[in-house]
Nucleic acid binder design. Structure first.
Lengths: 133, 133
DNA sequence: TTATTAAAGGAAAATATTTTTCCTTTAGCA
DNA sequence: TGCTAAAGGAAAAATATTTTCCTTTAATAA
């Protein structure tokens, strides 16, 4: 099935409208993998010249609330947003700032104090990517 | 050796002055473990009634640059700041928002694509803490 | 001690970021 | 094709952070 149809379905399930602006935002996140507010805004302006930055923010929040995208907080950088898919970890290059998806650890042997209930873990690896070596 | 003396030494090594405001900020972060800008500001105002929020921000940035403190980006929350000590991981309670230090994983078996050089990893565990169960 | 001086503090302004308001447009549906 | 609630756009408001500019002070040395 095509990506845009999938997104339209996901939106519908949450009683959200499939507007061209919203679909474009999802398309940009899909294409880039991870994008921050400004990247999304600059990119979408190419197709929607008069789109308001407020619309970008409103849609980011709507999509976050719907669980369609998630926010990735990157050390020393602006937050990136990505479409929710299978669980994975992130690698951020300290030279170019690019964020990459990497497989998540098979197991995470962290011993928590008694009484602490983990629900999920996020791992961010900082290093240098292939391009920047 | 006393904590405040240690901090004074660390500041001196970086050619930074040990001002009362700065020492108080370090004391607050020490006491709380993790504190966000507003917590620090509210707390320090008890002792320095007329301290400027700009001073808090300026000192946070100075201490970050000096590597004396670090910023912890917490999912869905404001960043917290903590004094740099031994490496550890974090646990954030999704009920109360409190951040706890936990031991870091003994090893992290993430297979990176060829050419990617990891330097360090940060792990954030989200769950429910003992108090909130 | 006291004098010197660059760094740091405070207040206010400037800038940046995000949200809200209010009105217009449009997607989804009958 | 018309109706209506949701979404978009522009501007204002609210929030967050940084900068400016002047005053105060910590650190150093005489």
């Amino acid at each position: 099935m095509e990506k845009s149809v999938q997104y339209a379905d996901m939106l519908k399930q949450k009683d959200l409208k499939s507007t061209p602006q919203r679909m474009a935002m999802l398309g940009i996140m899909e294409a880039k993998g991870h994008a921050d507010i400004d990247e999304i805004y600059q990119e979408i302006k190419k197709d929607f010249v008069s789109i308001s930055l407020a619309t970008v923010y409103k849609n980011i929040n709507t999509l976050l609330d719907a669980g369609i995208i998630e926010e990735i907080k990157v050390p020393q950088k602006k937050s990136k947003f990505e479409i929710v898919k299978h669980k994975h970890s992130h690698f951020v290059c300290e030279k170019c700032g690019e964020v990459y998806d990497v497989q998540k650890p098979k197991k995470l042997d962290i011993e928590l104090p008694e009484g602490f209930e983990p629900r999920e873990a996020s791992v961010m690896i900082v290093g240098v990517c292939k391009k920047c070596r």
